[in-house]
């Protein structure tokens, strides 16, 4: 199971990269691709298994000069977990 408190990481099933032709960050997986909007990309780029959710929220609040992003970030991470985009926490 995924521990919501653990530092989130993109699942090894997916590869996150910037696509020039799409002018967007995308998630690549076997035979498919998800095109990400800017907020989704900014969050997932920070899901490296080292940054905590709190750190990610902090960085985004600085980057976008906005407060109170925690609820938005957590809602997106829950969605990303449901989609299988985030890795299982180490047992």
């Amino acid at each position: 199971m995924i521990d919501p408190a653990a530092p989130p990481a993109v699942s090894p099933m997916y590869r996150l990269q910037f696509e020039q032709a799409q002018d967007a960050w995308v998630l690549l997986y076997p035979e498919g691709m998800v095109k990400l909007n800017t907020p989704a990309a900014e969050i997932l780029r920070r899901c490296d298994g080292r940054r905590s959710v709190g750190q990610i929220v902090g960085e985004l609040e600085v980057a976008f000069a906005r407060d109170h992003l925690r609820a938005d970030v957590e809602a997106f991470l829950a969605q990303a977990r449901d989609q299988g985009w985030l890795a299982q926490a180490a047992q």
């Binding site: 995308v26 690549l28 035979e31």
Partner: peptide
């Protein structure tokens, strides 16, 4: 270069 992403 044209933009292909998936390669089999």
């Amino acid at each position: 270069a044209l933009g292909a992403v998936q390669l089999g």
